[in-house]
Nucleic acid binder design. Sequence first.
RNA 1: GCCCGCGUAGGUUAGUCCGGACAGACUAUCGGGCUUCGGACCCGAAGACCCCGGUUCGAAUCCGGGCGCGGGCGCCA
Length: 569
Amino acid sequence: MGHDPWSELRDRAEQELRTIEFELHLTTPGTVSDAPEDRGLFSLATHAWAKELKQSPAEIASRVARHKVGPPFVALRPEGPYANFIMEPGAFAELVLTSVGSLGERYGQSPPRKERILLEHTSANPTGPLHVGRARNPFLGDALVRSLRFVGFPVTSEYLVNDIGRQMVLLYWAVTHLPGKTKDPEERLEYRYVKLYQEASERLEKDEPLKREIEQLTQRFEGGDVRLTKDIRKVGEAILESILDSLRRVNVTFDSFFWESDAILDGSVQRVIERLMPLSKEEDGAHYIDLSSFGLEGDAAKYVFVRKDGTSLYTTRDIAYHLNKMARCDLAINILGEDHKLTFQRLKSAFSLMGIDWAPETIFYAFVNLPEGRMSTRKGRVVHLDDLIDEALDRAYVEVSKRRTDLSEAKKREIAETIGISAVRYNIVRVQAEKAITFRWEEALNFEGNSSPFVQYAHARACSILAKSNGSGRADHRLLVHPQEQRLLRRIAKFPSGLRDAALGRRVHSVAGEASEFAAQFNQFYRDCPVLTAEPESLRDARIDLVSAARIVLQNALECLGLKAPKEM
RNA sequence: GCCCGCGUAGGUUAGUCCGGACAGACUAUCGGGCUUCGGACCCGAAGACCCCGGUUCGAAUCCGGGCGCGGGCGCCA
């Protein structure tokens, strides 16, 4: 048996099914599905054959069950309209633990794949600090990067740095022209800059000369003024560093960065403009492509790529960026806020008009709102990621202190950090990306039930048992026939395929769900099956191996979500 | 108005792609469990598929039409 016991067993069941179809001369193909817990491994639903065989599903199930199944199955047991594949429990345990044993810490991984994935996520504009709404992006993105890697893909994570455009130019102007009000050395750069930016933004509304100055700066910028580009980029770099500091706190890092200004400087934006020109229409000196043949109407169909002053738009640079991306990977994935849906649809349509039959795969996530409504920096109605982290650390510290009076201060801080940060990430990532989230402190920092500490606690508990066990030399895995042991084994067996399906389906939330259910099952096993005191020794050692296998699954599930697996907490 | 997404117990949600065994969990409520390998745990009670049609042996799941909520429809990013 190899890396994925469940899929291998399922293949065997499917072979049996084909034999059955042949024996009964069936023309309608049946399907093998997972049987409910405690009722065998897989099941055949017989309803679909009722018409063809002119028998009731229950009769067919009994008839099918007379088929002699081969190993590893020992029986096909009829239950109502179903026939369930039964495997001898001891043999199942042996098979699963042999599989875990041969892979060790790598259990759950799938064989390497060739397809190179370039996954772009976060890409927040370097004009201010990250808030929780946007933080859904790095959490989702990073977990997907880790999961895809774990199941065998070479993945590069990338951050698109938007150091171009009006916002950036205005910020640059604000930073170089406005005096900073506070000299508080504690205040982070990005917070100071964002205040200056807001001030400049307000002034811009009624200040005509300033408006012209910004326009001129933009033109110089785009005209390839290297010195100005570098100066503006310096401002962007400073804020980006600050954003990346926040992200490092939550264990998110990137493999590569793409600076939009590079696409201007190397001429690729200009080449995109030249390529689009023949396809474009003109209006007041501005150029756009008409996308009305792609199901878009009105302004949505008007894809402007050159302003009347000749400068490019985000649109144009986005095309340049994606052309560049296309050459660097076999599959591109973008994690985007749902406000980018139309933009993306237009990008795809434009590509199609250009004769390019390629587009990145996209994952759109819904916004994280506050109970009072949408987060808005302008209205001061935001929760910054750093504030959420700080609060999480504080609350986690309180919880740790309550339970662990025996630990040193440093150790308590360390544990509070693993728990607090993980809780924040887990609570965002456990929900499907397309569902809107309303941010509430008590939910964002949940430490029990379906939460990261719940999963981590199970891991720590397993570690604690293993630490006291002194190895397991005489294990007889065939003794693991207790229902709780079998349920746990079943979840262990399903882990590799479950994780692979989640990664291939880009459903990170189901990794979180499975981790939580796994932990719950481990706790039930823990309650019913003593490990260290089990008799005889061959059972005790078998249980130790089971705990070890469960521990590996918990650790790897946490790892895929970007969470730490503490040995104690 | 048009386009996209979402709608499951009091609250938060899994299942929806690919239709099948009593819709699974967390939380809140009520009631239990420490002779502990770590109680951030476990057990029990009660509680849900937005509405109307259709397809099907069978629909939370597929199709059509509503209703409600979110997002979008910039020479912003």
